[in-house]
Computed example of a mutant assay.
Amino acid sequence: MKPDALDCSFEGSARPGAPRVLAIPIPAQPGPPEATRAAARLLARAALAEALGAWLGCGAAAITISSERGQAPKATLTRAAPGDAALAATLAATDLSISHSAGLALVAWHPGGAVGVDVQAVAEAPQDPAERQRLATLYLGQNFMPNQATAQEGRAQTATTLIAFLETWSAHEARLKCLGEPLQEWTPGLAARLAACQARTLTLPAALTANGRARRVAAVAWRTAGLL
């Protein structure tokens, strides 16, 4: 099944050297939740192969995307024809990232260096302000701004704070993926490493957010090869 892939934009996405990000709707599958997660993995990798094949002019069938659990995806050639050495080298230097949440997969690739992408469903986020504050203090650092609020009054303020938390959290997760680091408690050393990555909030395609569809917050992070 060929995936429906839609471009995601972000501040600076049109500049040379910026990563590319695609959003792929994931239809719910019959059976246990693992069936939908399996479909997400397949569709995300198919979308990456299609995009990379179009970019390199070799077609999706010439590209294989790895699917090892706990490992960032890698792209390799499925063939070994004469003249493919340059394509293989380009793929080896192109970093990939995938994220799934609530019926959506995001895929990103960056020919110029490392990349990480993350998406969070608002409905699946911690709704309790105290729990968000605990997570922010533990993983995002004492200076995370919503930590400073001692009270939250009214639905509007609560919603605003929730979105601010998710935007910061998704950017943090994207930076971790860009570095190849697991989720871990905040330290000054980790903060210094994360600062090497640019991060931007993604604007998801309107088709994925219209008509009351599940709201999501997403981010992409990257750094150039010279900073690796």
Rank of each mutant, 00 (worst) to 15 (best):
S13T: 04
I26P: 04
A108L: 06
I24D: 01
V117H: 06
A121G: 15
V21W: 01
R41W: 07
P27L: 14
E50M: 08
A14F: 09
V21D: 11
L52D: 00
A89Y: 07
H110W: 09
A40N: 03
P73S: 07
A72T: 07
I98S: 07
A108S: 10
A89D: 14
A46Y: 02
A23R: 05
V107R: 01
S13C: 13
A121D: 15
L52F: 00
L87I: 05
R37I: 12
G116D: 05
Q127P: 04
A93F: 03
I65Y: 00
L96S: 10
G83H: 10
G83Y: 06
L77F: 01
V119P: 12
H100L: 13
L56I: 01
L22H: 05
K74Y: 02
W109C: 14
P33C: 14
W109T: 12
A40F: 00
A60H: 02
L42Y: 07
L56W: 03
E124D: 15
Q29K: 11
G112Q: 13
G116R: 04
A121C: 15
G70A: 08
A123T: 12
S97L: 03
I24Q: 00
C58A: 10
I24F: 03
T94G: 04
L87H: 07
D128P: 07
G83W: 09
T64R: 15
T94V: 03
A114G: 03
W55M: 13
L43H: 08
A14V: 12
L56M: 12
V119W: 02
C58Y: 02
A44D: 11
Q71Y: 08
A35E: 15
L106S: 14
D84I: 08
A18C: 06
T76W: 01
G113Y: 11
S97F: 05
L42E: 15
C58F: 05
A123S: 14
I24K: 01
A23Y: 06
A105D: 00
I26A: 04
L42P: 01
E34N: 06
G53Y: 03
A62D: 13
A88T: 06
P33M: 10
R45T: 06
T64E: 15
Q29Y: 04
S66I: 12
G70S: 03
A46E: 07
K74W: 02
L43S: 10
G17K: 14
T64Y: 06
D84C: 09
S99H: 10
E50Q: 15
A28T: 13
A61C: 06
A105Y: 00
R15C: 03
P82M: 05
V122T: 11
A102L: 10
A47V: 05
D128I: 07
R41K: 07
E50S: 08
G57F: 01
V107H: 00
G31M: 01
P111S: 11
C58L: 06
A23I: 04
L96P: 11
L22F: 08
S13R: 02
